[in-house]
Structures are given as C-alpha cells and as structure tokens.
C-alpha cells in the first residue's frame, strides 16, 4: 500500500477527542482545498485556517500608502499580483491604476530592481509584503540596488515574522501545520522553543501526500498529551534552515511592531529596514505622512484569521463581500480563507 494511503487511513481512523488543527499558511489553505483533503477528514478533526496569508494580514493603511505613492508621488509600484485587488480605504491599486497610476506586477523583488535599473527616469517602489520566506528576496533586492548604485528603487515594507504570532494564537488550535516554506528559512529551532512553551505542530509540505503525512503525525502524537515539534517536509526543511538568508535579513532589517489586520499590533512581529538602508525606505525617501487606513467596520477578517469564526459567520460574507467585489483582504487573496470558502462554496 502507498505511504500516502497509509497516512490517509491513520487520519481517517482517528477516534480520539475532537482536535482543531490550524494551517497557518495560505498556500496550505489553497492546497487543502485543491486536494479535497477536508472532505476526507473524520468529524473529530477540524481544520481551521490561520493568519498565514501575507496579503490577508496586510492592513488597509498599507494599501493607502501605496496608492498615495502611486498617485501623489507618481512612482511606479511594483508588486506581487495578489495585492492589486486588496481594497484600501478609498481604492485598491487596481482602482488607482484606472486613475492612471503605474502598477507593474512582478514575479520577484529582483525583477523590480532590474526594472528600476533599466528605467533610471522612473521612481520604482516595491511593495514588500511576506513572511520569512519572502523577506530574503526583498533584502537581496535592497542589497543589489545599493551595490549597483540604483537610486530610484525603494521598498514599502509590511513584512512580518511568524514566531510571535504562534504565541498569540496559542489556544486557538491543538496543533499547527507549520508553513513549509517559512520553515525552509527559519529551520526547526523555533518549533523546539514553541514546544517548550506547550505549543505543538508539524512542519508540512504542499503535496497531498505531504499534508496527509503531517496530519497522520499529529494524530499519532496528540494522544500522548505531550507537546511536539515534528518535521514532515524533510526533503525541503532542514534543522538549520537557511543561515545565509537569515544573516542577510539580520543585516538589512530589524524587528519592529507590526499591525496585523484584524488581530492588532504584535510587538516585534514586523520587519523594517535598518537606518543604514534608509535610502531604500520608501516612507523616508518620499517623506510620507502618517496614513491611517479605515477598514470597513463590519468586516470580520480578523476573527476569521484567528479561527474564531468561519467565513460564512461574517455578516458581509457572500452578500456584499464576494470575490468579484471583495471588502476584506481574506476575500481578495486567492489564498484567503474567505475566498477559498466562497469559491468552493463550503
């Protein structure tokens, strides 16, 4: 019998107390739907989707800042595709584009540097969102821009790290599916620390077999009542992770407080450019005033992100907030929990 099938059988045979497993990574949310894994689980295993989609936890004010740069300062915004449709207080970047803003979708922050280098007459800002996985690429972009003396490139940062978020989320779930690609950078040490604080989880990959294996591990371990930290994504995630990448982050960025949409401010959970790299900090370069976003007060993205409610329990879900006309970020991002629930009609 295939290992994948064995894993599925272990998960399906689980007859212990009801458990809640939180996948914190948006790509997991996506993969779990795509592989139809939720339908395979017994009733006593509940999968809840946590705040691991960088787009979903990005505050309305960040979009407002980007719109301000694009429309007031006439900069060319370079961004990952998902951010384009996120509603700001007045408009999304797609809305700004319709008003003449220059918005360019890129695959990599390094492409944004190249674009800046090829268009010296254009001021280019990269919208730097993302967790530990994505931060090294953004830092590399800053390093390259500095080395090549490219002066028309800067970052608007909203980067975040996950370790403190787990501590805030403690109690929301019995075990976490830890994000595979974040773990590729961080390594396993942080999960040992979390284990010592009573937080359990398994590092999980993205194929159907990998997700089922991680769930099987949780099912096997949870009975003992002891906290655990396991790696079910060994072909990618090593003990030490990516030391060169972490060193680069350390050199270029420093921790700061960060506002998570719906969750609030988590001390030390954000990353911003160090003073030495002020020339690449869009907020400083363009002398940006403080911009406070005003999200729709009825939007309950925060409760959805914390696993407190299911998307359909939000009063806006499916009525005024749809994938065609999203109100909250969780509906916009294709990784967003609401979007996934809406599209798959669960």
């Amino acid at each position: 019998m295939s290992a994948e099938k064995t894993a599925a059988e272990i998960v399906q045979a689980y007859d212990g107390r009801p458990i809640r497993v939180m996948e914190v990574c948006g790509t997991h949310t996506h993969a779990i739907f795509e592989h139809g894994i939720r339908n395979m689980l017994p009733d006593n295993i509940q999968l809840i989707s946590g705040p691991g989609c960088p787009v979903c936890v990005t505050e309305t004010g960040f979009i407002d800042e980007a719109v301000w740069l694009a429309l007031e300062k006439n900069v060319t915004i370079t961004t990952f595709g998902d951010l384009v449709r996120i509603p700001g207080t007045e408009m999304s970047l797609a809305g700004a584009r319709a008003k003449g803003a220059k918005i360019r979708i890129v695959y990599s922050p390094l492409d944004a540097v190249n674009y800046a280098s090829e268009h010296p007459e254009t001021n280019v800002v990269f919208l730097s969102v993302g967790f530990e996985t994505t931060v090294p690429a953004a830092c590399l972009a800053v390093k390259r821009a500095m080395e090549l003396g490219i002066r028309n490139f800067s970052l608007l940062t909203a980067n975040k790290t996950m370790d403190r978020a787990y501590r805030v989320l403690k109690g929301s779930a019995d075990a976490f599916l830890y994000p595979g690609h974040v773990s590729a950078v961080t390594g396993m040490k942080i999960y040992e620390e979390l284990k010592n604080e009573g937080i359990s989880g398994v590092v999980c990959g993205f194929t159907a077999g990998e997700i089922l294996t991680a769930l099987a591990m949780i099912v096997k371990k949870i009975g003992s009542g002891e906290p655990f930290a396991e790696n079910a994504y060994t072909r990618v995630v090593t003990e030490e992770g990516m030391p060169i990448g972490r060193k680069l982050i350390e050199e270029i960025m420093e921790p700061c407080e960060a506002a998570w949409r719906g969750i609030g401010v988590i001390e030390g959970s954000g990353l911003k450019l160090r003073e030495k790299y002020a020339a690449c900090d869009a907020r400083l370069v363009y002398d940006m005033p403080e911009i406070q976003g005003r999200p729709n007060p009825a939007c309950r993205c925060g409760d959805v992100l914390m696993g407190r409610i299911k998307p359909y329990e939000c009063p806006l879900f499916g009525k005024v907030c749809t994938t065609e006309h999203p109100v909250g970020a969780c509906m916009v991002s294709s990784e967003g929990t609401c979007s996934a629930y809406y599209k798959y009609n669960i």
């Binding site: 695959y107 922050p109 690429a137």
Partner: peptide
C-alpha cells in the same frame, strides 16, 4: 531547489513519494 519569488530557498530532493514513505515508516 525550491524556488520562491525568484530566489532558491532550499536545496531539495525532488521526490516527495520517497519522503512520504520514509516518514510514514518512521511513524509506524
């Protein structure tokens, strides 16, 4: 390698079947 946003974030083995097999053997 595992590629994310234009950078390689890890050297990997391409075969997730073997990985799953080994992990499950360990678990069982």
């Amino acid at each position: 390698v595992m590629v994310h946003a234009g950078i390689a974030i890890a050297k990997i083995t391409a075969d997730d079947q073997t990985e799953t097999q080994e992990l499950m053997q360990g678990l069982m």
